[in-house]
Nucleic acid binder design. Structure first.
Ligand SMILES: [Mn+2]
Ligand SMILES: [Mn+2]
Ligand SMILES: [Zn+2]
Ligand SMILES: [Zn+2]
Lengths: 141, 141
DNA sequence: AGTGAGATTTGGAATTAATCTAAAGTAGTC
DNA sequence: GACTACTTTAGATTAATTCCAAATCTCACT
């Protein structure tokens, strides 16, 4: 099964158990916190959102859940320079634009053929399993 | 002056003083350590190389010198996921390929028109000052 | 329903890369 | 030769993340 769309909330349980993992409340809350506000929150920001729904959740658990969801291909990690890792539930191949002033990060659609052209730049002997494209700049005032 | 080529070693002193900075032995050694072996070393690796030439140099100084050289546009920082920052003396616009097994990073030339096509993907209101392209994958065995 | 095995969560300690701090060293200027 | 600003240095500190070991939970099986 090739994932082409964000999981509907109820499919998360299935995707997890496909990987032999349990659909715990913590994992579902963490995943929903990414879906409901599709910015690219850091683990700390996810922690804050998750605590609103489950005040007893711990930061370690948020890190564990995020890692689990990444492993199951339900979400992606996004890094920019040395900033804290951010998390993205958009599974389409896409690029990121980061506003230098605010630090906010938005998705940029990239046509598949552009990804192909990029991969075609690699000399023989190198094969890419992924390509990351990140823009840095400013948003119109 | 638009920088299009790596500085020849003697031009570094000039570029530094243009910025009102001194061309110290530490700064020149750090810069040369990037030129002589054009992998993309981490600060720790630069430190090791620099110590071979100047056993008294400190890690803090290596960090300071690298930051200074970045500020002067003599070198670039390159990040990949959460790994330590790497440094690159290649000032041409280019992409990076990182071998997942070994962690080594090599430069990939990217034609200017591809960078242009990428920038053209941005919706109006967003303007990019830089674009980063990073491939992750494996090198033929 | 009760038990046991394994998975999961949790708080706190540990790690790592990088930055900060403040003292000591250097170099160009008067 | 003293003044000054710049630079280097060792060590302390920070920030994000990972590790750890104990507590909790879940599920399968009796
Ligand atoms: Mn979609
Ligand atoms: Mn060249
Ligand atoms: Zn995204
Ligand atoms: Zn490079």
């Amino acid at each position: 099964m090739i994932v082409t769309e964000n999981m509907p909330p109820e499919a998360v349980a299935q995707k997890l158990s496909e990987s032999g993992l349990r659909a715990t409340p913590q994992r579902e809350i963490v995943y929903r916190s990414l879906l409901t506000k599709r910015d690219h929150p850091t683990a700390e920001e996810v922690f804050a959102r998750a605590k609103a729904e489950m005040p007893t959740i711990s930061l370690a658990t948020v890190y564990n859940c995020l890692e689990t969801l990444v492993q199951c291909n339900l979400i992606r990690q996004v890094n920019h320079e040395r900033g804290p890792t951010r998390y993205c539930p958009n599974l389409h191949p896409h690029a990121h634009f980061r506003d230098e002033q605010t630090g906010t990060m938005v998705d940029i659609d990239v046509p598949a053929d552009l990804f192909e052209r990029l991969k075609a730049l690699l000399p023989t002997g190198l094969s890419a399993s992924s390509v990351e494209i990140t823009f840095r700049g400013k948003t119109q005032p």
